[in-house]
Design a protein around this nucleic acid. Structure first.
Lengths: 366, 366
DNA sequence: TGAACAAACCGTAACGGTTCAGAACATGGT
DNA sequence: ACCATGTTCTGAACCGTTACGGTTTGTTCA
């Protein structure tokens, strides 16, 4: 124990009132409505409180009475590290925390009971609302949150009718990016993507698995790529897509390795996140491939390290995303219609994208 | 509003009991002690609950009665971004979140009411304990937390007698690093450090300010550097130290610029964090300085990006730090003595440190 | 037959506050 | 002397739950 021993039992508002010979109401007012009692009495109350080691009204009891928990809950995907290791996710967290701080409420990370579908923690969380960040379409925790009589806001995914949501237009953004790559002349491309479903598949991805992905964001990005490349005359079936369940830089590297080993003629690697792209970049270096001369690499998100590495990517305002989610939730009290906020994205062309290697340019020669 | 309209008033345990014609105790038992009632009745209770839109016992009321909030509070420094932008801090957060998840409790980020000393949020937080991360020696929020009748664990700083704490041995680790730099032959060094006090000073630091720093960690690191370099015959007064209030890569770059502009003959830049070092690295590149041929740069923390950049740094196990804080706090219930956990650190020599430039080696020549 | 015991359920008293409608008293205006 | 107004404080109800110590009912077994 690192606290000094107080009296036999912790002081309460009632014991304080008894000690002072005043009513509980008065003590309560001393803390919450200073104008409701004389300054002298208030001073006496506060002094006695200090003497008795009373740190003010119990937050939980107060919450019960006022029907305000003073905190919003954040539901992350089952794997916490997944969220903390990606600066894009951390950015959302920061934005949300900022919004909460502004409103003077806490932000509670609700334990996800990794792996299993134990949803009890969602029911046990003393919060005034939930922000659900990037979970699969049929996530049980989301469902549990919706059962609670508090508002819920979704960030990124899933996209559900009638629910508040904030996120970018993944499809439009990806089309932009794909057009950039197509415009450079690439026709032999490969794709590195994140987890598509809750069953692990660190391997190439079938067309079916792409379309059946449980994660809306990945599904939308892949679909947008498919659409754009097919419009450019590239058969999507011929485009190798490699998936990674985990989401570290090393996973991006190993995915790039796997893809390039099998498809060495690929001239561009489109990654659905910057983290994966950074890994791909490392792998390219390891293979002695010059970027972008030998290989174009693109990311998605626009995290700081990507900018520093000169990565061509789609930047999305993650901080604003978190903030928007927070303000949306905190202002959801008496709103009647659901609200969807679409955030702007920006294609940022860096130094990792360029025309395909000259060896292949005879395709376009005279 | 994004929730369907329930009945006139939210269902409670009592209304459910009334509807069913059983006692509240029984309904409570249906949720908390299934063995205390017949399976049929329990099923009936749960079904009726679903029909009435009752999502289970109210968490706040339950907390009041059981005297368990089911969450621990995290107190960060006044500036949230400060914490989220540094992967080292995020690592601690992740570790702590992991420990909380294991224990099935939430992790609440307590709003710090930026800048001002409004400590109310600490008193309003419904939590079973506090983790205080890296705050100045006299932080009012820490003081407020200690007043609450719940255990508190400190991470990194401050170092206070009789309080639980987890952190590395900053002094020993820094001495290791300094000896490495000294051993390479550097005698003209500069230092980039983080905020030393709550008053902003983006400038060179006086000796007095170094020793009077309100942040224990920075004070310890600077003191260790001073000790080691003076032992090597370097007058510490001649060593330029530049401070940055904020803590982004750009701040490291500008600090390096400021220092090198005034002291171009410096052969090594010791930074008290990897973030600052990464900035210094960028600035060196901008100046056309080769690292380490022209300039040695070192960091502190061992974050991922630093490793990828080949930075010479001191690695500390941030994830374990957070985890240790969590387990320490969660197990603090009936402990009687305060506990201090010192984490191991490791000097990681990368490709950014080497002997000083040859031009100056005539100092040591025959 | 009835004592013993387990299973199923219940009543009451907290848990520690906030809120609201007044009571008691003083002040000032007419 | 009377009423209106304001200040300061109080009593009781209520927030939704769980802990604790019962009671009731049914079964088993000597």
């Amino acid at each position: 124990m690192n606290r000094p021993m107080r009296s036999r039992r912790q002081a309460t508002l009632a014991s304080l009132a008894a000690e002072l010979g005043v009513s509980r109401t008065t003590v309560s007012n001393a803390y919450n409505r200073p104008d409701q009692l004389s300054p002298e009495l208030r001073k006496r109350v506060l002094e006695t409180a200090k003497r008795l080691g009373y740190a003010g009204p119990d937050p939980v009891a107060r919450s019960l009475r006022t029907r305000k928990a003073g905190a919003v809950g954040l539901l992350l995907t089952e794997n916490l590290s997944y969220a903390f290791r990606d600066p894009a996710a951390v950015g959302v967290l920061e934005g949300l925390a900022l919004a909460c701080e502004d409103a003077g409420v806490g932000l509670t990370l609700v334990p996800g009971s990794p792996g299993n579908e134990d949803v009890a923690a969602v029911h046990r969380a003393g919060v005034d609302g939930f922000v659900v960040y990037s979970v699969p379409d049929d996530d049980p925790h989301l469902e549990a949150a919706l059962q609670r009589p508090v508002p819920t806001v979704i960030v990124d995914q899933p996209q559900l009718e009638g629910l508040d949501r904030v996120g970018p237009d993944d499809e439009a953004a990806t089309i932009d990016l794909a057009n950039h790559v197509v415009g450079l002349g690439h026709r032999q491309v490969g794709v590195l993507c994140m987890r598509l479903s809750s069953d692990r598949n660190d391997d190439f991805v079938s067309l079916y698995r792409q379309q059946d992905a449980h994660y809306h964001v990945q599904r939308a990005r892949l679909a947008a790529l498919q659409r754009t490349f097919e419009a450019a005359g590239v058969s999507w079936e011929s485009v190798p897509v490699v998936e990674r369940f985990d989401h570290h830089v090393d996973d991006g590297a190993s995915a790039a390795r796997q893809l390039l080993d099998k498809h060495p003629r690929v001239t561009a690697l489109i990654c659905t996140s910057d983290i994966l792209a950074l890994g791909a970049l490392a792998e390219a270096g390891r293979r002695g491939l010059r970027v972008p001369a030998d290989l174009t690499i693109t990311g998605f998100d626009g995290i700081g390290e990507a900018t520093r590495a000169g990565l061509t990517t789609v930047h999305q305002p993650v901080l604003e995303k978190g903030k928007a989610a927070g303000t949306l939730l905190l202002g959801a009290g008496d709103r009647v219609a659901s609200k969807v906020i679409t955030l702007p994205t920006e294609l940022r062309v860096g130094t990792t994208s360029g025309p395909p290697r000259t060896a292949e340019q005879h395709w376009f020669g005279p």
